[in-house]
């Protein structure tokens, strides 16, 4: 068993080395002639505007939170996958109950509109969605 960890470690070490080898080799052989234009961010030929540090959309956060919950669920599924053959069909039912309870949460988030990218049901929204909502109210 112990040698398996050695193999995993060797894989990790080789992957790490290969990743850095690219940096190291180009540092050694590439000519070091930096100009302002070369160090600029490449944006398909366009001149970049503003800062790279900008606020990401807050909606990603809900997705990340939901992801972590199901990440933990996956950990339990690993355990199930290992013993499924041995313990048989009953564990399938057990895991099904487990997942059904969690899917209630996902359905809750879905129904409440947390997963919607464009929130059309905002009560006091302004901006570009207000026109769409006006249109929605008129057609009703």
């Amino acid at each position: 068993m112990q040698e398996h960890y050695g193999i995993a470690l060797a894989f990790g070490a080789v992957a790490f080395l290969l990743m850095y080898m690219g940096f190291i080799i180009q540092k050694l052989i590439a000519p070091n002639n930096k100009t302002e234009l070369k160090m600029d961010t490449y944006e398909c030929g366009e001149e970049p505007e503003g800062d790279g540090w900008l606020q990401f959309n807050i909606r990603f956060y809900v997705v990340a939170l939901i992801f972590i919950i199901f990440d933990i669920e996956v950990v339990f599924l690993f355990l199930w996958a290992v013993v499924f053959k041995e313990l048989g069909f009953l564990t399938f039912v057990e895991v099904f109950v487990f997942m059904a309870i969690l899917i209630v949460g996902l359905a809750y988030a879905w129904v409440k509109g947390d997963l919607d990218w464009v929130k059309m049901k905002l009560k006091y929204g302004t901006g570009r969605y207000s026109a769409a909502r006006l249109h929605e109210a008129e057609t009703k």
Partner: peptide, 20 residues
Amino acid sequence: FEIASVLLLGALIGAATLAR
């Protein structure tokens, strides 16, 4: 094991509610 799923459900609903 099944109670753990209820705990995770609580965490999921709580997180979704707080993020709203």
